[in-house]
Simulated assay, not measured.
Amino acid sequence: MLTEFLSLLCLGLSLGFEDEKKNEMLPKPTLSALPSNMVEHRGNVSLRCQSHFQNVTFMLGKLQDSGYRQEQRSTGHEAEFLLTHLEPKDAGMYFCAYKTMVSQEWSEESEHLWLQVKDNDDGRGAPAAKKCKII
């Protein structure tokens, strides 16, 4: 009888611990651009999101476009999102987040990363809109 009680008590405590873990706020991931956050017109870049946890689902988003979202499952601590054939309209602020199997809630967003895409005219990093000459 005592053994059954202790087993149930341990089970209840471990289930309670899992519930507590679900409500914890997950720490921010980090986001970096490889090889650089300055990309040639029609070039490629990998945006790498890293977390403190393994076996998570990563999400990449764009601040200026609420409809932009990529998700990727990873067994490790990181995921790489390959962006290809970039145009000036692809420039902007990107961020990532992740969720664990236990939490099912997204972590805090990473710090925002400014991705610049060089335009054809002057080779410098251009924002999402074309530059205008002031006369």
Rank of each mutant, 00 (worst) to 15 (best):
V117Y: 08
K118Y: 12
P88Q: 10
G92H: 08
L115G: 00
T100S: 10
M101Y: 14
V102F: 09
S107L: 08
K118A: 12
F95T: 05
M93T: 08
V102N: 14
E111F: 06
M93E: 09
D119N: 10
S107K: 03
E108A: 08
E87D: 14
K89G: 14
C96M: 08
S103G: 10
T100H: 06
A91F: 06
S110E: 01
H112Q: 08
Y94C: 03
M101V: 15
Q104N: 12
W106H: 03
M93W: 13
D119L: 00
K99V: 00
E87A: 14
K99S: 11
Q116N: 11
Y94E: 01
A91S: 12
L86I: 11
P88L: 11
L113N: 08
D119Q: 11
Q104A: 12
E108V: 07
E105Q: 06
A97T: 08
V117R: 07
W106D: 04
S110Q: 00
E108K: 05
G92N: 10
W106M: 09
S107F: 00
M93Q: 11
M101W: 15
W114L: 14
S103L: 00
Q116V: 13
M93P: 03
P88I: 08
E105M: 11
F95L: 04
E111H: 03
M93K: 11
L86S: 04
E87G: 13
C96W: 01
D90K: 08
E87K: 15
W106K: 01
E109W: 05
S107Y: 04
S103F: 00
E111Y: 05
E105Y: 06
F95E: 03
Y94W: 06
L86M: 12
K89F: 14
S110P: 01
W106S: 03
L115A: 07
Q104E: 10
Q116G: 12
A91R: 00
M101F: 15
E87F: 15
P88D: 11
D119S: 13
S103H: 04
H112F: 05
L115P: 02
Y98E: 03
F95H: 02
Q116D: 13
P88K: 06
S107N: 04
W114M: 14
W114P: 08
Y98L: 04
